[in-house]
Design a protein around this nucleic acid. Sequence first.
DNA 1: TGACAATATGTCAGATCTGACATAATATAA
DNA 2: TTATATTATGTCAGATCTGACATATTGTCA
Lengths: 102, 102
Amino acid sequence: MDKKKKKAIESKGYKVGSVDELLGLNADEMEYIELKLSLSQALTKHRKKSKLTQAQLAKRLKSSQSRVAKMENGDPSVSVDLLIKSLLALGADKNSIAKAII
Amino acid sequence: MDKKKKKAIESKGYKVGSVDELLGLNADEMEYIELKLSLSQALTKHRKKSKLTQAQLAKRLKSSQSRVAKMENGDPSVSVDLLIKSLLALGADKNSIAKAII
DNA sequence: TGACAATATGTCAGATCTGACATAATATAA
DNA sequence: TTATATTATGTCAGATCTGACATATTGTCA
């Protein structure tokens, strides 16, 4: 399992040591986490396309570099709201956000 | 301006008395609110398709009828996270969620 | 290698969101 | 109409998220 996905799956307090433990999550929880991970990845992509460092993006968002890092890594403490607001701030529109989560 | 949209736009503390006051919101804020409103509407649609009352859906979500009402009306106190989790609980998949926000 | 830039991780006080409750408003049927 | 079901609104304590900070880790280039 790749590192980012593992961390994202640890959302909601689930500790994933191996693929088998994924069985502890129900389908809805999995879908929610995957959706969040998709947005995280979209954020990294948009930031890099804009040639910004995490610190520069943080400033634009009036946030901090550490929170941007958490956003991009699917940290459980990050909400979908924050991911969406950040994507919009980077110029993503509804269409591209929708495309990201499919 | 229709009632639901007006309430949704009042998210984040904005008080909208007329269309003109919308000028106080920037493009990103508008897009975020519209996206949230789209999810709200999708939730109502899915609930009705499932022939559930707000109270019945609330029970399934381990939430309350009043919160479901707030979700469906774009109340500022409702997060996108909660809307998405609720849609997933109603059987919506990533695709239909994505379609809803376009 | 070392120096510097960029990213990642851990923590926490304050801000925001949540479920729950009471109650008001609206719909539906007799 | 009146009852009853459903939906909407207001409030609040507890739960969760956030920005900020310190610090660790990783990347890059000379």
